[in-house]
Simulated assay, not measured.
Amino acid sequence: MIGKIMSETVHHSSPLRVSFEFFPPKTPAMEETLWSSIQRLAPLRPDFVSVTYGAGGSTRERTHHTVRRILTETALAPAAHLTCVDASREDVDAVIRQYRQTGVRHFVALRGDSQGGVGDKFVAREDGYRNGAELTAGLKAIDPDVEVSVSAYPEKHPESPDFATDIDMLKRKVDNGATRAITQFFFDNDIYERYVERVRRAGIYIPVVPGIVPIHDFTKIQRFCSAVGASIPAWLAERFDGLENDPQTRSHVAAAVCAEQVLDLTRRGLSDFHFYTMNRADLCYSICHILGMRPARGDAAAEKAA
């Protein structure tokens, strides 16, 4: 069955489109790992690559440096993350203008986590943007032509009291100019599908791109899921049971599980996917290969990466 799905995917009239998310490095060694990952994945010709902010905007300067380096040293299209955390509107607007002067045309507008990290209550500054909807409006006020991606939550944001409130926030982002939603990661495709149905019923018609996370470390993913309110199906936990000290087998299982998830989503009509890489390229590259993606023939970088 998997072989049949793979064949259908490879020859689909609308090929898969992927984007990759990276986080800015904290040390020279991490920067080396990041650039190795970017070089490894670049031959797959992603639609764009995004670079995150840390909790509380703690990696702001490193994010700027990474985005500038992508612009000057690669042919990739970077999307710069922006948050509302611990910054005035004036400060955020200055960052936006700086990015535009550098050549950035795509932003990921997020409220962001508080300085205390995921799970800690967010408190907006009186002189700052309060949420992703206001930040999106600020971006469009500075340049109506920029592309703005925003977040979406198939299992609702952990701070939202209900789905109606959560989807109303997404609608406000769209009304203010958002052109794409990228979801929090999920592992149950039925949950994603039900969420998109809710979104469409609310009159929201922008693409809702699935956020996909390859599982490098199941224990860490479990902890993060608990913090952000994402669920882990029992069958998924069973796949990784007993592999805590077997990284090689764990990697094989992770690639298979992630590829199965994306292949199932392609059968449901999806063609765009956003991968949370964790700055580690090999697993993402393996998954994309299973999905039928190949570097262009004769591409020197691709041949080096392969």
Rank of each mutant, 00 (worst) to 15 (best):
H81F: 08
V85Y: 00
V85S: 09
S88K: 10
E90T: 15
V92D: 01
V92S: 07
V95F: 05
Y99R: 15
R100F: 10
Q101N: 15
Q101A: 15
Q101Y: 12
T102N: 10
G103W: 09
H106E: 09
V108D: 00
L110H: 06
D113L: 10
Q115I: 10
D120N: 15
F122P: 08
V123A: 08
G128V: 02
R130Y: 00
N131S: 04
E134H: 04
E134N: 07
A137L: 11
A141W: 01
P144C: 06
D145S: 15
E147F: 13
V148P: 06
V148R: 04
S151K: 03
Y153L: 06
P154M: 02
H157D: 07
E159M: 05
E159P: 13
S160V: 03
D162V: 10
D166R: 09
V174P: 03
V174D: 00
D175Q: 14
D175S: 14
T179F: 02
A181W: 01
I182A: 06
F185S: 09
F186H: 13
I191Q: 15
Y195Q: 14
R198F: 10
V199W: 03
V199Y: 02
R200L: 13
G203T: 08
V209E: 06
P210I: 02
P210L: 00
H216N: 14
T219D: 12
